[in-house]
Simulated scan of single mutants.
Amino acid sequence: MKRGKFMEPIPTDLIIEIFSRLPAKSVAGFRTLSKHWASTLRSPGFTELFQTRSSNRPRLLLAAERNGEWLFFSSPQPQNRYEKSSHLDYHTKFSGDVSRYICSYASGLVYFPDLWLSKDASPVICNPITGMYESLPDLMREHHEILSLGTGELSWRSNIISCPAYDRSLSEGICINGVLYYLAQTVGVSSSVIICFDVRSEEFKFIDAECFNDQVDDTSELILVNYVGKLGGINWKYCQAGERRTVELSMWVLEDVEKHEWVKYVYSLPENEVLDSCDFSVAGVTTRGDIVLCMKYTCKLFYVFYFDPERNTLQSVEIQGFGTNLEAVENRGRVYAFVNHVEDLRVDDAKQLKSSISQVKHLCSCCNKVSQPNYHY
Rank of each mutant, 00 (worst) to 15 (best):
P309G: 07
N226V: 02
A165G: 03
E134H: 07
G188C: 08
E153I: 12
Y133D: 10
F302P: 02
M140C: 10
I194W: 04
D218H: 12
F322Q: 03
N235R: 02
F94T: 05
N368S: 14
Y133V: 05
G242N: 08
E202S: 11
C196D: 01
S277R: 13
M7E: 13
G96M: 06
W236F: 15
L326Y: 14
N67V: 02
S95M: 15
G233L: 09
S201T: 15
Q79V: 09
S85T: 11
K259S: 07
G284F: 06
A63N: 12
G150T: 06
V228T: 14
I160Y: 04
R346H: 12
I223F: 07
E134I: 14
K369M: 11
S74K: 03
T32L: 15
S158V: 04
F307Y: 15
N159A: 10
L249R: 07
E17M: 02
Y306M: 06
E145C: 12
K93G: 04
K205Q: 05
M7I: 07
P270S: 03
G178T: 05
M295N: 06
Y227L: 02
K35V: 04
A184M: 09
E83F: 00
T40K: 12
R332W: 03
H36Y: 12
H260Q: 08
S107A: 11
C367L: 06
S250P: 00
T246F: 01
L14P: 00
E172C: 01
N331G: 01
L363I: 09
S54V: 04
G229D: 09
T186N: 11
G289F: 08
K5E: 13
L139A: 08
R21I: 05
S220Y: 12
L293M: 15
K237H: 13
G29H: 13
L249D: 09
R346Y: 09
V253R: 04
C294D: 05
I357V: 15
F112N: 06
F322D: 08
F46N: 08
V124D: 09
N368I: 07
R21L: 14
S190P: 00
L117F: 07
K354C: 12
V370I: 14
I207V: 15
H341P: 03
S220R: 13
S135L: 02
N331S: 04
S39V: 03
A24S: 15
R81K: 14
A184T: 10
I18A: 04
Y101F: 07
E172I: 00
K300I: 02
L149M: 12
C163W: 05
S277N: 11
K351E: 14
E17Q: 11
P113W: 08
P123K: 01
S171K: 02
Q359N: 14
G150I: 06
K93S: 15
T32E: 12
F206Q: 08
A165T: 10
F206S: 03
L88T: 06
Q359G: 03
P128M: 10
L154P: 10
I223V: 15
E310H: 06
I195P: 01
D138I: 09
G45A: 13
L147M: 09
L136E: 10
D344I: 04
I223C: 10
V304I: 13
V347G: 05
S85R: 09
T324A: 12
L61Y: 05
D214W: 00
H341N: 07
S26V: 06
L49I: 09
Y90P: 01
D208K: 15
S250H: 02
Y181S: 05
S171R: 03
G321I: 04
A24I: 11
S74Y: 11
P9T: 06
R311D: 08
T12C: 01
P9N: 08
C294E: 01
